[in-house]
Design a protein around this nucleic acid. Structure first.
Length: 108
DNA sequence: TGTATGACCCTAA
DNA sequence: ATTAGGGCCATAC
């Protein structure tokens, strides 16, 4: 039964903090889903009570039909986005990353 | 049993 | 930036 998986995916999505976003791939990995497609399916079927607006695609763009709604909701939560894309660099939810932040990364 | 579809992801041209 | 192709997993017909 993938009911357990179904619930686990929901749980991970619920765990995403306000003001942050996550990708389908991340949710899949954290929840142990075999594929990101499952995450999408769960959201489509039973994501009505979940913060689905915090879930974006790997490149930072939301799903085509919900794009407008998502960006609007995210903006309400404090996540500023371009007309099309969200800065994952800044808003991506990094679950318990051990990154001390002292790395010489030149990203900005 | 096989094909088609979907709130996906990655690589290449 | 955009299109195309392959891989991915579960459902529906």
């Amino acid at each position: 039964m993938d009911d357990e998986l179904h619930e686990r995916i929901r749980a991970v999505i619920t765990d995403v903090p306000v003001g942050t976003v996550a990708t389908y791939g991340d949710i899949a990995a954290l929840s142990g889903a075999p594929s990101p497609r499952m995450v999408g399916r769960v959201l489509a079927e039973d994501g009505h009570d979940l913060p689905w607006h915090r879930i974006l695609r790997a490149n930072g763009t939301p799903a085509p039909h919900l794009a407008h709604e998502q960006l609007a909701r995210l903006r309400t939560e404090g996540v500023l986005a371009d007309e099309q894309r969200v800065n994952l660099r800044k808003y991506r939810w990094q679950a318990a990353t051990d990154d001390t932040g002292d790395g010489p990364e030149g990203l900005f």
